[in-house]
Structure formats: structure tokens, C-alpha cells
Amino acid sequence: MSKMLKPGINVKPGSSKENKTGSWRNYYPKFDHAKCIACGTCETYCPEGIIFGDKEHKYDADLDYCKGCGICANICPVKCIEMLLEVR
């Protein structure tokens, strides 16, 4: 029996993390921690679930996965997130 393809080809949970979707991005979010009120709205609304932070450390996005959709910047109540052109 093959070691690679198991019958049923079921796969491990969360294995999509190998797929770094950050490469899709045209714009990236820049967080202004001085303005950030740590409300966590951006974290709630990130379609990828890759914004992290807390009251103490303020928020940032995991750029390995961020697709640059801009929802966080649009939803931020104090407009502390700016979408900047990605330069690679």
C-alpha cells in the first residue's frame, strides 16, 4: 500500500497553513500603533483570521498569509491601518 496516497486521501487538519497566500498581495496593511485603540475589530473581520494583538501589544497582520483585501483598513474605527503598495 502506498505511503503517499492513503485510501480516501483524507488529510491533516489545518494543513493549508503550508500555503502562504501572502504572495497574492498587491497592498499590505501598515498598522499605526500610536493611533490604535486595540479594539480588535480588525482581528474579528479579517477573512483569513491572521490579525493578532492585544491591549498591550496592539495589532498586526501575519504577512505570510495576508491577501491584502483591505477590510481591516476599511473597518478600523480610528483609521490606523493604511494599505500600502507592496514592493517586492
Partner: peptide, 25 residues
Amino acid sequence: PFQVLDPANPITMGCFTEPAYHMDV
């Protein structure tokens, strides 16, 4: 069962395949 849905060991069943895998499966 050789494959079973179980929250204690959560597998994904019924993935779709691209041409790189389909024929082999």
C-alpha cells in the same frame, strides 16, 4: 474504520484533486 470523522482526531475527508493527483488516486 480506517477513516472516521472524530473531533479528537479531526481529519478532512473528500478533498478535491488537481491534475497533479487525480489520476494517481
